[in-house]
Simulated assay, not measured.
Amino acid sequence: MTTFGERLTKLREGKNLSQAKLAKMAGVPQSTIAQIETGRNKSTKKIIELAEVLDTTPNYLLNGVKDLSVVPSSSEIGSYSDKNISNSIGAYVKIPYYDISLSAGMGNATWIVRDTHDKLLFRESWLQRKGLDESSLKAMYVRGESMEPLLYDMDTILLNINDLEIVDGGVYAIIYKNRLYIKELRNTENGIDIISYHRDYETMHVTQETYDQFKVLGKMVWRGG
């Protein structure tokens, strides 16, 4: 996996920009660019400005995570650490990463904020266009290969925990038989199909007999990897 400095260098050179030119366009000292590219500096408060100049996202520059969603444009989504960005971030919304703790035998889930400073950064205008409320959004990592090629292990997804109505073809975080899954759901005459994309994983079926072991936690509204 490449480093922040390596990604910055590649993008800068791809635009035929010198360190001095990039520094001027992003409003940072040239020494900052040099320190990032040599690995001496792991972050900068100007990450948003650098991403916009380089037509990428802060998330990709810092973590190598590419926005896989269709709607947002290049600089509308990113990831950052609180210590790396000032609190004056204008019309941006910070979404924390969460883990889910399951209650054994209860089918209940508790959202737990991950012990990390990293968060996703979204423009308020994008949330408004999507009709999303920041209070209902939770970011989490995908684990496993069952949803490849849509989602890969350790991809990031954003869930709307207030959108619990099953729409055929939508991807949801669910609990089924006291296990957490990220799956496509489809309504059927006999219940609900829980669909994996990887061919090695069979479709699971929620029936009337097992419906009390099934719970929708939220719908995926964005993905990055």
Rank of each mutant, 00 (worst) to 15 (best):
T2R: 14
T9S: 15
T9E: 13
E13F: 08
E13T: 13
E13I: 09
N16W: 03
S18R: 04
A20L: 11
K21A: 15
K21H: 04
K24P: 00
A26P: 08
G27A: 09
S31C: 01
T32R: 13
A34Y: 06
Q35G: 02
I36A: 06
I36S: 06
G39P: 15
R40D: 10
S43G: 05
S43Q: 14
K45A: 11
I47F: 06
E49F: 01
L50H: 08
A51F: 07
A51G: 04
L54H: 09
L54W: 08
D55M: 10
T56M: 13
N59D: 07
N63H: 12
V65T: 05
K66H: 06
D67A: 06
L68N: 11
S69A: 15
P72D: 06
S73F: 12
S74L: 08
E76G: 10
G78H: 06
S81E: 13
K83Y: 10
N84Q: 12
I85V: 15
I85R: 06
G90M: 05
K94I: 13
K94Q: 05
Y97P: 01
S101N: 10
S101D: 12
S101P: 00
S103R: 03
M106T: 15
N108W: 03
W111P: 01
I112E: 13
D115S: 14
D115E: 15
D115M: 11
T116N: 12
L120S: 03
L120R: 04
L120E: 04
L120W: 02
L121W: 08
F122W: 07
R123N: 12
R123I: 09
S125G: 03
S125A: 11
Q128N: 12
K130C: 05
G131M: 05
L132C: 01
S135M: 06
S135D: 14
L137N: 01
L137T: 04
Y141R: 07
V142A: 10
V142D: 04
E145P: 00
S146R: 05
S146T: 07
E148M: 14
E148H: 01
L150H: 03
L150S: 10
I157E: 03
I157L: 04
N162R: 09
L164Y: 02
V167T: 15
V167E: 14
V167S: 13
V167M: 08
D168R: 05
D168W: 09
V171Y: 09
V171Q: 02
A173E: 00
I174P: 02
I174G: 00
I175R: 04
Y176D: 00
N178A: 05
N178G: 07
Y181Q: 03
I182Y: 01
K183Y: 03
E184S: 13
R186P: 00
N187F: 06
T188E: 13
G191N: 06
G191M: 10
I192S: 05
I192E: 08
I194R: 03
I195E: 03
S196M: 08
Y197E: 12
Y197P: 04
H198S: 14
R199Y: 09
R199F: 09
Y201P: 03
V206Q: 04
V206W: 05
Q208G: 13
E209M: 12
D212R: 11
Q213E: 15
F214H: 07
F214R: 11
L217C: 08
L217H: 05
K219H: 08
K219M: 03
M220P: 01
M220N: 06
W222H: 13
R223K: 14
